[in-house]
Computed example of a mutant assay.
Amino acid sequence: MSPVVMADPISAQECAEHRDRGDAIVVDMRPQVVRHQGSLPGAVVVDPHELDAAFDPASKRRIPVIDDLDTEIAVVSVSSQAPQIAQRIAALGYTNVHYVDGGFRALRSATGA
C-alpha cells in the first residue's frame, strides 16, 4: 500500500507573496463554467480534466513553466475540490504543492485585483 500524499493549505496572502517573488506557480484549476468569475493575473489555467496531462512528469503536454518536481505549486479551484486536486498533483511526485485557503475570492482579495 502506497503512503497517502498530503498537500497543505497556503493562505491567499502568502500565495500572493510567493507568486510576486517568482517562487510559486499559481495554477487555476477551476472548471470552465466557474471561471466566469474572473481571471487570476499570472495564473496558469488548467482544466481539472487535464490534470494528468498537465502535471505528469513524463507527459509531452506537461505545463512548460514547471521546471522540476520541487517547483512550488499553489492550486486554486472550487474550495471543496482544491485539497484533492493538490493531493493528486503531489502524488505525481511534486514535493511543494499547496492549495489556496479560501480559493479564488481570497486570492483576488489578497492581490487587490
Results as ranks from 00 to 15, higher is better:
Arg61Glu: 09
Ala16Arg: 07
Ala113Asn: 15
Val27Arg: 10
Val78Phe: 05
Glu50Asp: 11
Ala58Thr: 12
Ile10Met: 12
Ser39Thr: 13
Arg108Cys: 09
Asp68Asn: 15
Arg108Glu: 05
Asp56Asn: 11
Ala86Arg: 07
Ile85Cys: 02
Arg30Glu: 06
Phe104Leu: 13
Pro64Val: 05
Leu107Met: 13
Val44Met: 04
Asp23His: 12
Ala16Cys: 03
Met29Pro: 11
Asp47Trp: 07
Val5Asn: 09
Pro31Phe: 08
Ile63Cys: 09
Asp68Val: 06
Arg62Ala: 15
Pro64His: 00
Ser77Arg: 01
Tyr99His: 15
Ala16Val: 15
Ala110Thr: 05
Gly22Lys: 07
Thr95Asn: 12
Arg30Tyr: 10
Ile66Met: 09
Ala16Asp: 13
Pro48Trp: 02
Pro48Cys: 03
Ile73Gly: 08
Asp8Gly: 08
Val45Gly: 02
Pro64Arg: 02
Phe104Ile: 12
Asp20Tyr: 02
Pro31Leu: 11
Gln84Arg: 08
Arg35Leu: 03
Pro3Ser: 12
Ala90Arg: 00
Ser80Gln: 14
Thr111Phe: 02
Ile10Val: 15
Pro41Leu: 12
Asp8Phe: 09
Val100Gly: 12
Met29Leu: 13
Val100Phe: 14
His36Val: 12
Asp70Lys: 13
Glu50Leu: 04
Ser79Ala: 14
Ala53Val: 03
Asp8Gln: 15
Arg21Thr: 01
Gly93Ser: 10
Val75Cys: 02
Leu51Met: 05
Gln84Ile: 06
Ser2Trp: 09
Gln37Pro: 05
Arg21Lys: 13
Ser11Tyr: 05
Ser39Ile: 07
Met6Cys: 08
Pro41Asp: 13
Gly103His: 08
Ser109Trp: 05
Val46Ala: 03
Gly38Val: 04
Ala53Leu: 11
Asp23Lys: 07
Pro41Gly: 06
Ser80Ala: 14
Met1Ser: 14
Leu51Ser: 00
Val78Met: 11
Gly93Arg: 04
Val4Lys: 10
Asp67Ser: 14
Glu50Val: 02
Ile10Gln: 08
Val46Gln: 08
Pro41Met: 09
Ser77Val: 06
Gln84Leu: 09
Arg62Pro: 03
Asp52Trp: 08
Gln37Asp: 15
Gly102Phe: 10
Leu51Val: 00
Ile89Tyr: 06
Leu69Glu: 12
Ala24Tyr: 00
Ile63Arg: 08
Arg61Tyr: 12
Ala106Ser: 15
Ala110Ser: 11
Asp23Arg: 15
Met29Trp: 11
Ser2Ile: 12
Tyr94Met: 04
Lys60Val: 13
Arg30Ala: 10
Gly93Gln: 03
Val65Gly: 09
Ser77Gln: 01
Gln37Trp: 08
Pro57Ala: 03
Arg62Phe: 05
Ile89Gly: 03
Leu51Thr: 00
Gln37Ile: 02
Arg105Ala: 10
Ala12Val: 07
Gly93His: 05
Thr71Phe: 06
Ala90Leu: 04
Ile85Asp: 02
Gln84Gly: 12
Ser79Lys: 14
His18Pro: 01
Val45Asp: 02
Ala12Gln: 06
Arg19Glu: 14
Ser80Cys: 08
Arg30Phe: 11
Thr71Lys: 09
Met29Ile: 03
Leu107Thr: 13
Asp47Cys: 08
Ala113Ser: 15
Ile63Thr: 05
Asp56Tyr: 07
Glu14His: 10
Thr111Gln: 14
Gln13Ser: 13
